[in-house]
């Protein structure tokens, strides 16, 4: 018997990072392969985008609604109630919607992908696909990651729209403001410098969700409990990625002067 080899923890972290980078390369290499799985991409878009819409819509609406109600007393104190639409619009679009929606989707989508691929791995379906000569990365991973990258920004846009609607509803509890005036005020403060970084950011959040979910699922161990571990660590890691990416994004946009 060979000797027990001790692997220090930092080496494990490096190994994990290396594996993730290799997995990422496999993903990028397989995007541009012949025979793109359009049909599966559409199905994944349906599962990830359309199926998440109710959750995202309710969240977006309530976030806008609650933010308005929370801001109202303070803004009233300063006599700046007319600034509520602008304040809510800017904070929703720049920061709150992208991050909250991404975190919610990390919970719903990344765990779903992690569990699905994890159980496929455990029941040898991934290997069966591989030995049959089909390309599991192309069929399972590329479609899911791309679907996330397309759908998370769209979900975010929907949430932002509904968030503004929620804010409008929140304002109309106390007083009557016409929708034209509200949206006019909201949009005067938003620039492309707010919308564009937010949109690009969500594409990366989508990538993080899809990638982490696929990586954790695809590399889960044998045994039933590893499916749970894959789903759980997918959510945890995707959320962490999102938060870290958000911190980097804010530095980048500030440095670029948006």
């Amino acid at each position: 018997m060979a000797q027990e080899i001790y692997i220090p923890s930092y080496k494990r972290v490096l190994e994990e990072a290396g594996n993730q980078v290799l997995f990422m390369f496999r993903f990028f290499r397989n995007i541009f392969r012949f025979d793109f799985e359009w049909n599966e991409l559409v199905r994944q878009c349906y599962m990830i985008g359309y199926r998440s819409f109710p959750l995202v819509a309710i969240t977006g609406f309530i976030v806008g609604f609650v933010m308005t109600l929370q801001a109202e007393p303070t803004m009233k104190e300063f006599g700046a109630e007319s600034y509520i639409p602008r304040m809510v619009a800017v904070s929703l679009i720049r920061e709150i919607c992208p991050v909250i929606i991404a975190l919610i989707c990390a919970g719903k989508v990344a765990s779903g992908i992690g569990a699905e691929l994890g159980s496929m791995k455990v029941t040898e379906q991934v290997e069966a696909m591989e030995v049959s000569g089909a390309n599991p990365i192309q069929y399972l991973v590329v479609t899911r990651i791309l679907a996330c990258m397309f759908m998370i920004p769209l979900l975010n846009i929907a949430a932002e729209g509904l968030g503004l609607l929620g804010s409008y509803a929140g304002i109309n509890i106390g007083e009557h403001v016409s929708p034209v005036l509200f949206f006019n005020k909201a949009f005067t403060s938003i620039t492309f410098g707010d919308l564009l970084p937010s949109f690009i950011k969500t594409v990366f959040f989508g990538f993080a969700i899809g990638f982490v979910g696929c990586y954790k699922g695809y590399n889960s161990d044998r045994g039933t409990e590893s499916v749970g571990i894959a789903a759980n660590s997918a959510v945890v890691n995707a959320s962490l990625w999102i938060i870290v990416m958000d911190a980097i994004a804010v530095q980048l946009t500030n440095a670029l002067g948006y």
Binding site: M120, T123, Q125
Partner: peptide, 8 residues
Amino acid sequence: FQSGALYD
């Protein structure tokens, strides 16, 4: 495969 590994 042992389990049949059907795509479920």
